[in-house]
């Protein structure tokens, strides 16, 4: 396997043109980004609404679990037969699978905001929108972004599977390689897909670090530590 892999990687033809590695990586990342945007546009407002009003939480958790059990290959082939277009079928499939993690993260994040904090904000005269955007969302941000991170992993993986129904991206190397018994290509494609997932995950982790307010980070770290962070002062 290793010599075949080396052969494939060292062939300059595999690094150029529309089938070349850079083009395929961009294509794959492009599908992920597009699906992520659509999924977030659906899931974040819905999660904020459910987390804020607690309405429909049971339905949300239940359907989230069901979608997690949904076999990606089954979903993608089903959608392809329905729409007979690889791109449309794959995109819908990606969005369907990208929504639940973001929804769950957003819902959990908003729900986890201390009730006293929201109560204080209301008592101080913040209106509904001010409470949501200035208090609840910043505090929920770590969990919301955690949901986005899970969604990205799911999307990179599913986009590779969707190459089976004709989608482009790195999954092409896997299926084309299998069809041509070119195991160097298959292995290279698998490694590239894994690398893309790992790198995107690191990027989002960095974004998460940069966006989470410092006070929230300290509070989370304090809660994780064994004892209370600050010792009680004595005012006797």
């Amino acid at each position: 396997m290793i010599p075949e892999l080396v052969d494939w990687v060292s062939d300059p033809a595999n690094w150029q043109g529309t089938d070349g590695v850079p083009a395929r990586v961009l294509q794959h990342a492009g599908y992920v980004a597009l699906a992520l945007l659509i999924a977030a546009a659906i899931a974040v407002p819905l999660g904020l609404f459910v987390g804020h009003t607690r309405r429909g939480a049971v339905v949300l958790v239940g359907s989230g679990n069901a979608i997690r059990a949904l076999p990606t290959l089954g979903l993608v082939t089903f959608l392809f037969l329905l729409f007979t277009d690889s791109f449309v079928a794959a995109l819908i499939g990606l969005v369907v699978l990208g929504v639940p993690p973001i929804l769950a993260g957003t819902y959990a994040g908003i729900q986890a905001v201390d009730h006293d904090v929201v109560d204080a904000a209301e008592g101080m005269g913040m209106r509904g929108g001010q409470r949501l955007w200035r208090i609840e969302v910043p505090i929920a941000l770590p969990l919301i972004l955690g949901g986005v991170r899970n969604a990205v992993l799911q999307l990179v993986a599913t986009a590779a599977v969707a190459a089976y129904v004709g989608l482009g991206g790195l999954g092409r190397y896997l299926f084309d390689g299998l069809a041509n018994f070119d195991y160097g290509e298959v292995t290279a494609g698998a490694i590239l897909t894994a690398l893309l997932a790992v790198i995107l995950d690191l990027v989002i982790a960095a974004v998460q670090r940069a966006l989470v307010p410092k006070g929230v980070r300290i509070a989370t770290a304090g809660r994780r530590a064994a004892g209370p962070a600050a010792t009680e002062e004595v005012v006797a």
Binding site: A120, A121, G123, M124, G125, I135, G215, A219
Partner: peptide, 23 residues
């Protein structure tokens, strides 16, 4: 208006309810 009314009334609760993301 409730929001305006509340800005003119100080409000302190049991666990202080401080905003963890603000200094």
């Amino acid at each position: 208006d409730p929001a305006v009314l509340r800005r003119g009334i100080g409000y302190v609760i049991q666990h202080a309810g401080l905003f963890p993301h603000r200094t």
